[in-house]
Each structure stands twice: as structure tokens, then as C-alpha cells.
Amino acid sequence: MKLQVADLNSFYGPAHILFDIALEVGEGEVVALLGRNGAGKSTTFRSIVGLVENRSGRIVFEGKDVSREPTHAIVRGGLGYVPEERRIFTDLTVEENLEVGRQPKRPNAPYWTREKLFTLFPNLGEMRNRPGGRMSGGEQQMLTIARTLMGNPSLVLLDEPSEGLSPKIVEQMVDAILAMKKEGVSIVVSEQNLHFARLISDRVYIIERGKICFGGTIAELDARPDVRDAHLSL
């Protein structure tokens, strides 16, 4: 088991956001976390990597409980995180953005060099010295993923990677995620677009009002249209 989350509860100030979240990610698996805006997808990710400080529960990554560690230590341990809204460093060039993400090679995780990333995202290789602020939204999204891969993670949390991107770029994103999976990276993707989730994931969880209300394969979800329609409003 790559990642095991149990009894995760999170708070923003007095507001209770996540209730007893439990989810598991197997070795080399791609898991989608589906739910509407405000359901708690981002908070789940932020809680796992320690950006939400007020949290309780167990977060076991590669057999080790990381729920008391600070963000940077969790990430250095090989758990990569790509936040929503891209958040690249707009003043820094592509190369410098990648430099911020660079971490030493680690055992049991694929090793990424700049050159290897430029083969995965050929666009980026053509604009190594361009400031991030002068890239299009699609290019920026690719850069955030490449930047996180520079840390040689064995698991990556991808928060809404398709949001605000054109259909064509979303299709490229599908290819990139499948390529990452092939290299051996385990991935959790949060999404609202079920079409997108279908193309990449082995299993899905549905989150609604801070609670996990479904977990299973896509086929199992399709067998339960009641669940799907109630929680995803499709």
C-alpha cells in the first residue's frame, strides 16, 4: 500500500471541513477523487501534505505515519503535491521553476532529470528561459507537474489538473498522467470531470460535504447510477 489515510478530520478555524476521511492508494495505481466544488477535495490534499495544520487522523505513506510532520518533510519523503490554480513562480524561468522542485534521487521512486521531463513535456523544452508569467495556461499546468516530478516523488497528488484547460490540452494531460503511471508513479487526481477521470483512473472515490461516500472501480460506479447522479450531479 502506497498511501493509507484513516479517520482524517480537518478544520479551518472553527469550521469542521473533513469528516473521518479514509482512502487507500496501491502501488502504481491512479485513483481519482471526485466531487463538486467545495466538497473537500482540495482540503483532503492539503491535509495530507500538512498544509492544513488543524487536522487529526492517520496518514500512512510508505508504511510511515506522516501526520505529524511538516509539509516540507512530507514532500521530501517522496509525496509530491500539485495544487490547483497552477501556482507557478511567474517571475522565474522554466529552468528556475524546475530548480525549486529539485530534490535528491531516492530509492523506490522513478528518477527524473530535466531532459527526461522535456521529453515528457516537449513544449517546456522549447522555452527553458521563458519566465513562467509569459506561458499559456496549458503550458503552466504542464510546468507545475514537471516541477513536482523534479522532486522524484513516488506518489503525486494532482489537484484539478484539467480545470480551465482547453479540451485538446486536457487530452495531452491524459497522456502525461498515463506516462507518469507507466514510469511507476502512483497518482491521486481530484476532478469534477468524470470523462477525464474515466480515461486515467483505476479506482475512484466520491467525496461530498467532507465525507467519502463511495469508493470503487469505474465499472462499479457505473453500476450505481443513483450514487453517481446524487453526488456528481451528472
Partner: peptide, 14 residues
């Protein structure tokens, strides 16, 4: 320089 723009993101990169 990265932290100047987005300090949480820098932490999220380890």
C-alpha cells in the same frame, strides 16, 4: 525569489 511569490508553494515542493 520563488518564496517571494508563493511561500506555501515553496514548502509544498519540499
Amino acid at each position: 525569489r520563488a518564496a517571494t511569490q508563493d511561500r506555501d508553494m515553496v514548502a509544498a515542493l519540499g
